[in-house]
């Protein structure tokens, strides 16, 4: 396993490198001139050129990329063009809120999705199954902004159970996490259901059931562990992508996550912030997927690290 881990860490570095190359290339293609935006609308062409020089944007692309890479290796992500503050400081200020929302969001997805999926599988074809199906699909199809506003209006404004958005203790976290859970829980419910049905249809489980073993025991001992593999894969991808920020949920609930930072940076072509945020996200995606890959053999011993 250690050899596998070492190999994966090396590969992950390659992934991160590839992401920076792609992002850099895309930024180069971006149809906006950051020097112009920084220099302001009253700037003369000469002023723009001098700003371009100050930002280092007049250097050849390769040189810029190597400069960036060199900085990253020394832990220097550069300064924001518009906020003039260290990108690492900006990212750091968003790290904890993003982590909290990510973990809480995945937790709500699981709390809503897993029991619903198991119930639906055990009551296959019944009204409970169909009701859960409807709710799952509604959760996924619901537009997030409207859903968020609705949750805020009813649960925070009318019933005053939670604060009206903003960052703070756990009571601030519940609604945005619930919004994420409602949207993502449907996926977990559906995958869990089909995964359970698949396992339940297998010979040994059918035999066990035929022998009169109680339902829940069969479910727990045999079915659940195997059925969880795809769920672990989904948790991995969700952990990774949520760490990249959930722009809509963050902006409705006023959550100072990384999504809002990235979105504003993209709109203002704040290249150092964009690069920093994308690299940051890539790091978590690689980590989360690695974690998922490490969990599979624990759930199903026949799967090996390779």
């Amino acid at each position: 396993m250690m050899a596998y881990l070492a190999q994966r860490v090396l590969q992950s570095l390659g992934v991160l490198w590839a992401v920076t190359v792609i992002t850099f290339a895309l930024l180069y293609l971006l149809p906006a001139d950051p020097a112009r935006l920084v220099a302001g609308r009253s700037a003369t062409p000469e002023v723009v050129e001098r700003v371009r020089h100050e930002l280092g944007l007049d250097r050849p692309i390769l040189q810029r990329y190597l400069g960036y890479l060199g900085g990253v290796l020394q832990g220097d992500l550069g300064r924001s063009y518009l906020q003039k503050i260290q990108v690492s400081e900006l990212l750091a200020s968003r790290l904890v809120p993003t982590l909290e929302l990510t973990l809480a969001g995945v937790l709500f997805e699981l709390l809503l999705g897993i029991p619903a999926g198991i119930l639906a599988a055990l009551r296959r074809g019944g009204w409970l199954d169909q009701g859960i199906m409807l709710l799952s699909f509604a959760g996924v199809a619901a537009p997030q902004f409207a859903l968020g506003l609705l949750l805020l209006y009813v649960l925070a404004y009318k019933l005053a159970l939670f604060p009206l958005g903003g960052y703070g203790g756990w009571e601030h976290l519940v609604l945005p996490a619930l919004a994420l859970g409602l949207a993502g829980g449907g996926w977990y419910a559906r995958i869990m259901r089909s995964s359970m049905l698949e396992v339940l249809s297998q010979d040994y489980v059918r035999t066990a059931r035929a022998k009169g073993l109680a339902g829940p025991v069969v479910v727990y001992k045999h079915a659940l562990r195997n059925a969880l593999l795809p769920i672990v894969a989904m948790i991995g991808t969700d952990l990774g992508t949520f760490m990249g920020g959930v722009v809509v949920v963050e902006s409705v609930f006023g959550w100072p996550g990384i999504g809002q930072l990235t979105w504003q940076a993209i709109q203002t072509v704040d290249i150092p912030v964009i690069l920093g945020a994308v690299t940051f996200t890539a790091l978590f995606i690689v980590l989360a997927n690695l974690l998922a890959d490490l969990v599979y053999p624990l759930l199903d011993p026949r799967v090996q690290y390779r």
Binding site: V15, V19, V278, I285
Partner: peptide, 11 residues
Amino acid sequence: TDVMMAFPALL
């Protein structure tokens, strides 16, 4: 797949 997951699609 990892690379594509981190791919900045908005950009």
